[in-house]
Amino acid sequence: MSRRDFVRLTGACAATLAAAGVAPAGGEAGDLDADRRGVLVDLTVCIGCRRCEWACRNENNPPAGELHECDDQSVFRSRRRPTSTQLTVVNRSPGPAGGRPVHVKTQCMHCEHPACASACLVGAMRKTPAGPVIYDASRCIGCRYCMVACPFQYASYEYDNALTPQVKKCQLCGNRTQRGELPACVAICPVEALTYGRRDDLLRIAHERLRSCPDQYIDHVYGEHEAGGTSWLYLSDRPFSELGFPTLGSSSPAALTEAIQHGIFKGFAAPVMLFGLLGAVGKLMHAPKESP
C-alpha cells in the first residue's frame, strides 16, 4: 500500500465512523417506558393564580419572594415566555365578551421525541425513558441548537452569565418525583388544574372528561399527538390556536432529519457505497499510464 492509498483509506474510515458515531439523540418510541409520567392541564379549571410560577421559582431559583406577590395581575398584559429564572409562566387569553379568560401555563412540554435532543450535538439534552427531557450542563457546549429546534420555543438561555451559561428549562422536578413528591407546580396548584401521573392514565382521564362533558371542552387533547406527542397534555374549552399554542403536525420535527440521517447511515451502506465509488473514480483517474 502506497502512502497515498493509506491516507485515502484512513480518511474514508474516519469519515464513516464520525458520521455513524453521532447517536440518534431523539428517543425512539420503543425506548420509552410504558409508565412514563406526564402532566394533564385542564385549562377550564385554571384560575390564573400563578402559584405554579412561585412554586417553580421556589424550587429552582430561590428565593421566590412573597407568595402574595403572585396576585399581581398586571403581568397578564403581555404574553410572556419562560425565562432562565422563571421556567414556567402563565399567560392569559381574554375570553369572549362576558366570558372567562383562559390562563395557559407554559413550560417545556417534554416531547416524546424531542427535537432539542435530536439537534443537540453532544447529547446534553436527553429524553429519559421515564418521561422528562433533561439537560446535562456538563456536556453542553452552548450552541443553543436546542432552543432553535424547540417547536414551542420554551427553552431559554442564561445570557447574563458570561462564563458558565446554561440552557434553562423545566426538568419536571426530577429530584422531587424521585422522592415520591409531586412536581412543585403540580403540588401547589390550589384548584388542581394540574394532574401528574402516568401519561397513559392521563390520556385515559382526558378522554373520559371529553366523553362525559362534551359541552365543557373542545374535543382535542393538545399534546397527545402534537409534535409526535408531549408529556404535558392540555384540555381546553377554546381552540388551542386561539390560546397561543402552536399548530403542529403529529410527527416530531426531528422525524424528517432523523429519517434522513439514520437512513443514510443504516448499516453503513451509504458511506461504504459513497467512498467505494469515490475510491473507484479516483482509481480510474489516477490509473498509471502505460509508458510509450
Binding site: 403540588a187 396548584c189 390550589p190 384548584v191 401528574y196 401521573g197 392521563l202
Partner: peptide
C-alpha cells in the same frame, strides 16, 4: 391528601377551591 398515583378526583382542597372559584 393528594394521591401519589394518577388521581381521577381532585383532593379535598382542590375540590373546595374549584367549587368556590
Amino acid at each position: 391528601e393528594r394521591s401519589a398515583g394518577t388521581p381521577t378526583h381532585p383532593s379535598l382542597k382542590g375540590a373546595y377551591h374549584r367549587q368556590c372559584l
